[in-house]
Simulated assay, not measured.
Amino acid sequence: MTQASPAFPLAFNARLTIGTRGSPLALWQAHAVRDALAQTLGRTPESIVVEVIRTSGDRIQDRALAEAGGKGLFTKEIEEALTDGRIDLAVHSAKDVATFLPEGLHLAGYLPRADVRDALIQREGAGLADLPQGARIGTASLRREAQLRRLRPDLDVALLRGNVQTRLAKVRGGEFHGTLLALAGLDRLGIANEASAVLDTANFLPAVGQGAVAIETRIADEATNAAIVAIACRATGIALAAERAFLAALDGSCRTPIAGLATVESGEVRLKGLVLSPDGRDAAEADVRAPVADAARLGAACGTELRQSAPARALGL
């Protein structure tokens, strides 16, 4: 084994353990973080352990997450292992991370963000306009459902849970005319060619955090935090600071259709936010900018503005 880089504490000569879900996409993300850390620390990838932890979200497949307790179900058991010291860091899809984290934990950084857009997978045709009247579309996302209904009120949107392969199989098998998945996930699994169409963010905004890989650590673990800072993407961190503050101001969860996308360019962060009623008929949206240093403040202000202006039905009131 190569020696740890002198830029990092000797604690990294000890075993380092990453916690993750066990789906193919989750494992791709964990291995990407492992490889980046190994290079930074001067270690072999094999010297960093990837531990699979089954979450409540993985076990519950027969109902929407909103009915079962929210998207934190995909991180709960992993965060418990992190708090207890059984793992040193957790790797998540950023869009699955709850708005508020357990005490003592934080998001230490993100890998460079991939394509944020949603992909439509359908049995026939190449876009929403090609779906037949009343086509059955499967999704577990209230955000996707609301935006689909906003664009195509005639569609029959039904619950479809499971990993990427499960959802694709149910479309191929004829249970659904189509489904929506994150293009980033398809890309990372090497199956982007499954996409029939890629939906433009101009009229179909992604989930907060979509396309980003989040790394969660204990706040007090200085050695691990230092290593994460060394591999983290600054622009992604700025964008997610705005998006997550936006979500927090709305008290966002899986129970409200919320979409948001922040981009960083020329020293500015631009945030587009959207809140919808479940049927997509009512909506409030914003498009705001600020210097990158004010990313979190921008997100919080945008979320507060939409919370005050959104129709009551859009906030589930």
Score class of each variant (00 low, 15 high):
A4E: 13
S5T: 08
P9A: 15
T17P: 02
G22C: 00
W28F: 10
I48H: 14
I53W: 00
R59Q: 08
T83H: 07
D84G: 15
D84V: 03
I87L: 14
I87G: 03
A94I: 00
V97E: 03
P112W: 04
P112N: 01
P112T: 01
V116Y: 04
R123C: 10
L128Y: 11
Q133T: 15
A135H: 11
R136G: 01
T139D: 06
L142W: 07
L142V: 00
R143G: 08
R144A: 12
R150N: 11
R152P: 05
R161K: 15
G162A: 05
G162M: 09
N163M: 11
H177E: 14
G178W: 14
A182W: 00
N193S: 13
A195T: 02
T217P: 06
T217L: 04
A220Q: 10
E222R: 14
T224D: 08
I238D: 04
I238C: 12
A239K: 02
A245E: 06
D251E: 12
G252R: 00
G252M: 01
I258C: 10
A259H: 04
L261K: 05
S266T: 09
G273R: 11
G273L: 05
P278W: 01
A283G: 06
A286E: 00
A295W: 08
G299F: 12
G303C: 06
